[in-house]
Write a protein that binds this DNA or RNA. Structure first.
Length: 164
DNA sequence: GCCAACGTTGGC
DNA sequence: GCCAACGTTGGC
């Protein structure tokens, strides 16, 4: 079965690709997602799947880098913590409702591939993130689209793996 | 800051 | 199960 490709949004002011990069060496739980369709996508992510890391509410908004799934979705602890802004009183340890995979930084693009540039490429016109009114924070991306975005970012085929 | 688009909630 | 009201997202 092939690797999966996704796009995840994060508000750049809140958690940017630079924040993810700083936490490299540790894994980062992609938590706080509180939308059922997005959650279902998170739960279908497999270890090794690659994520386009998209900055929303940024200037400009666009794809800023790549992350990788290192652990499949598990209970989102922020939903169970009353002190957390993402607390959901409906969630319990038995029925956590919300789930998050662990991810790690792969690569920060030298330049953000912004919305205007994405839209300028006909072959990317099917990307969900370009649809009007699209508010999902997690969405699947076609392999060809993923690879095309990497090309635009000036990629070699893939970032080298760092051994640790 | 505006506002269109969307998901969720709750009255009925 | 409908749908209006509401809150949120996110580009502009």
């Amino acid at each position: 079965m092939g690797k999966g490709y996704w796009l995840v949004k994060s508000e750049a002011d809140c958690f940017s690709i630079a924040d993810l990069e700083r936490s490299n060496g540790k894994t980062t739980a992609w938590d706080g997602v509180r939308n059922f369709q997005a959650r279902n996508y998170l739960r279908s992510m497999k270890r090794g799947d690659l994520l386009l890391f998209y900055h929303s509410s940024a200037e400009p908004p666009g794809v800023a880098g790549v992350a990788e799934v290192v652990a499949e979705a598990h209970a989102d602890a922020t939903a169970l913590d009353p002190a957390d802004s993402h607390y959901d009183p409906r969630a319990t340890p038995e029925e956590p409702i919300w789930f998050c995979p662990d991810v790690r930084h792969v690569r920060t693009f030298e330049r953000v591939i912004d919305l205007a540039e994405l839209r300028a490429h006909e072959e990317l016109s099917g990307m969900a993130v370009l649809r009007k009114g699209q508010r999902l924070s997690v969405m699947p991306v076609a392999k060809e689209e993923f690879e095309r975005v990497l090309e635009l970012a000036g990629s070699r085929a893939q970032a080298p793996r760092r051994s640790r």
